[in-house]
Each structure stands twice: as structure tokens, then as C-alpha cells.
Amino acid sequence: MTGPSELRFFPSADGDLAYLDTGSGDPVVLLHSGYVDHRVWDAQIPALAAHHRVIAPDVRGHGFSANATEPFRWADDLAGLLRHLDAGPVVLVGLSMGGVIATDTVLEHPGLVRAVVTCGAATGDVQYTDPWYQEVQAESARALAAGDVQAWLAAFLRVVPGPHRTADDVDPDILRRLREMALHTISKHTPGEKNLLVPVTGTWSRLPEIDVPVLAVNGALEPADPRDAAQRLAEAVPDGRAVTIDGTGHYPNMERPELFNRTLLDFLRAL
């Protein structure tokens, strides 16, 4: 896994934001999922960097980046980084929370984006109705409120196999890596800490504004909610399509990296 020694830091107006910047060519930005960091992309970074400039930030409050001390939007942080690096327009590839950041950014800063790939995500306005998802979210919220890190970690890791498998069905190294990253991020925060994130809202009605190619990827073993949301995203934009990756849940990039990388590289080559 990449480490902090390879990271660079962008001095934002509210603390330093960490990012990896490697390779050369047309820029691709990898946006990680919640509670982890850029290392979730370890299997993608070298594959992409062979042909592309790869920028993989740790978003505010995660990994090696500063926490917020004032209201912020992740899309604005990303736009600030891309302007600092003179890197746009870029292809945004976002996993889960990172996928929401990708759609937020193309809506709020369209000139910086030339294509979008979401994975296990659509927009920040998705409402999950699946009972299993709601149960995991409630479990996570209870543990966070109580400051019970081990109970929170257990809820966080339930998402990896999803509702149709158990942890025994997942490579233990994937669970170990996610646990390590999540523990690092959660240790930066305190129970009851004020959430300063300002969400981007009203996104569903704005999706037709997205005039760049969009690929929505999901693991086939995800609950129906995220797969349906991905299909809705792909149908709402002028140039969108949705694909599923068999035999994977919420982290297809980790569970089936070769297939995920091939799907991503095929999309990039077609731009």
C-alpha cells in the first residue's frame, strides 16, 4: 500500500489536504469511499498510471488530510485542488462517497470534468429503503454516538460482503486493509463532533445538465437500492450507461481488480 511518504499536500484555506500524484498523460482523479483514504485504490493506481496522470486525494476529514474547522463542500475542496494542480478537465472516478463527490463536482464545477465514473453510488440525494442497509446505518450511528469504535467497525465492515454473503466469503486481506484505513480516519474524530459538511442538494433534477460521458458501475451482490440508483443516474444524463461486475459487493475495485481495471480502461480509451 502507498504510504504518507509519497503524499503531497495542498494548502487549502482550511488546512492541508493530502493527495497522491503519479504517472503522466490525461488526468484521472480517484475519489475514495467514506472513512478510508486513497489506499483503497492501490490496485488501480499503477494500472492507470501506466497511461494516465493519476491524482488520488484523501478528502477532508479522511486519511492524511485535515479535518474541517468551518463549513465546507467536498466538491469545492476538489475543485481547489484541481485548479492548484492546473489539472482540469479530468476524469473523475468515485467509489461510494467518492461517487457522490464526483457527481457533485461535475454539477458544481462542470468545466473541470470531462467524464465521470461512479461505483456503488449515484448522487447524495439517494435514499436507501432496503431494510438491510437501514439496519447497518442504524447500527453504525448508534456505535458512533456511543464512541464504540469496535462496534462501529463491525457495522462498517458488514457492507463489504453485503446482504448475500458473510465475511468468510471475502478475502481477509481486503477486510484487514479497510479496517486499517477506517481506524486511521475514525481516530481523527471525536464522538458528538459537529458535522460541518454542507451537502449538495437537488441533484436528481439537475442530472440532465451533465453533458459528459458517465459510467455507473456496481457490484452485482449489492442490494437493489444502489443498483437501481446507478441505473437512474445513467438514464438521466445525456450520455450514460450502467454496468455490473459479477461476484462483488460494494468494493469491486478491491475484490475483482483486474475486471474493474479493464472496465475502467475500456471506458477511458473510448473518450
Rank of each mutant, 00 (worst) to 15 (best):
M1S: 12
T2S: 13
T2P: 13
S5W: 09
F10C: 05
P11G: 06
S12A: 15
G15M: 12
D21W: 13
G23N: 07
S24N: 07
G25K: 11
G25A: 13
V28P: 00
V29A: 06
L31D: 08
Y35M: 07
V40L: 13
W41V: 00
W41M: 06
A47H: 03
L48S: 00
A49N: 12
R53Y: 14
I55H: 06
A56Y: 06
P57I: 06
D58T: 11
R60S: 08
G61M: 10
H62Y: 12
S65L: 05
A66Q: 10
F72Y: 14
R73K: 11
W74E: 05
W74R: 09
A75E: 07
A79G: 09
G80H: 11
L81Y: 04
L85S: 07
L92D: 03
V93W: 02
G94V: 05
G94N: 08
M97T: 07
G99I: 01
V100D: 00
V100H: 02
V113Y: 02
R114L: 04
V116P: 05
T123M: 04
Y128H: 10
Y128W: 11
T129P: 00
V136D: 10
Q137F: 14
E139G: 05
E139D: 14
A141M: 14
G147Q: 08
G147W: 10
Q150S: 13
A151C: 10
A155G: 13
L157I: 02
P161D: 08
G162Q: 04
R165F: 06
D168L: 14
D169T: 06
L175F: 09
R179Y: 00
A182Q: 02
H184A: 10
I186D: 01
P191T: 14
P191R: 13
G192C: 10
K194Y: 03
K194R: 15
L196I: 05
V198K: 11
V198Q: 15
T203Q: 15
S205G: 14
L207N: 01
D211N: 12
P213K: 03
V214A: 10
A216P: 04
V217E: 00
N218W: 00
N218Y: 01
A220C: 04
A220W: 00
D225W: 05
D225K: 01
R227M: 14
D228P: 02
D228G: 06
A229N: 09
A229Q: 09
A230L: 08
E235I: 00
A236D: 07
V237G: 08
V237C: 12
R241H: 11
A242I: 00
A242Y: 00
V243F: 03
G247P: 07
T248R: 00
Y251T: 12
Y251P: 01
N253H: 15
M254K: 03
E255N: 08
R256S: 14
L259T: 07
L265P: 04
D266L: 02
R269E: 13
L271F: 08
